[in-house]
Design a protein around this nucleic acid. Sequence first.
DNA 1: ACCAAACCCCACTGGAGAACCGGGGTATAA
DNA 2: TTATACCCCGGTTCTCCAGTGGGGTTTGGT
Lengths: 145, 145
Amino acid sequence: MELSCKSEYALLALIELAAHHAKGEPLQIRQIASQQNIPDRYLEQLLATLRRGGLVRSQRGAKGGYLLAREPWKITLLEALECIEGTNGQKAPASDRPHTVESEIVRDIWQEVRDRAQAVLQKYTLQDLKEQRDARHQVNIMYYI
Amino acid sequence: MELSCKSEYALLALIELAAHHAKGEPLQIRQIASQQNIPDRYLEQLLATLRRGGLVRSQRGAKGGYLLAREPWKITLLEALECIEGTNGQKAPASDRPHTVESEIVRDIWQEVRDRAQAVLQKYTLQDLKEQRDARHQVNIMYYI
DNA sequence: ACCAAACCCCACTGGAGAACCGGGGTATAA
DNA sequence: TTATACCCCGGTTCTCCAGTGGGGTTTGGT
């Protein structure tokens, strides 16, 4: 798993879309970008990737924008991250190298690490993040009063 | 965590050193490299990093080579990987960006993923890998008979 | 019909790191 | 003294990240 800036941008955008999802109307790149301080031309590319991955859909033309392709509780973070950074074929070290007993041991541990990371990302959906968001915003308002 | 080719090379070298550790005599780069099919000039750099990190020590001159700086059960994989790839300070996306409620949620999840990955790497020592190695080699011998 | 809002696609840049290769210097055992 | 092995520094090629920019296409509103 990357946990890069790119991945963070994608998740932030998806949280915004999840929060806006009940309204049923599309949300524009500009809105998301300004809310989350993301360069809009870059975010555009990420949303295009998410669209091609089937996680969001777009509405072209005036009053257009993006919507989640599915209900927010049906999209896990694992899906989102695999979509956004999954294109780069070999994240694992090339398996074409002749493998020894020792290299298999290392690969097994690599796999265990990946499995643990993926388990965390599997258990959260966009709905979960949206609820956390609402809860924390509520706390902020209470402090403000 | 990177889980790159570089990291794999480093762990393979450390396993070799752990396996050879009982003899008390140094092991040469060439030996390790040919055993594990690693380009030797590259491995040299990695061992230099591990030396600077205090995980191995070197003996210069003829009959020289590398030895573990500590007992194999006192070196965890987490230590080894942090040493080999840890110089790049922030693997996390720059925190200098203005952070929103949403970005904090994402960072928290990032942290949870990292913690899980590190927990796996923390629980294994070089001694564990050496024992796995011995066990699997033994199995291979039995098949051969 | 027109216009402006919005997405769409492609290309390019600068920087960082991975995965090497190579040359020459230095310590050390035999 | 000499061969062996580590030591240090530098360069190369490649890929990806993180953006920026230009021009094209769809669409709703007037």
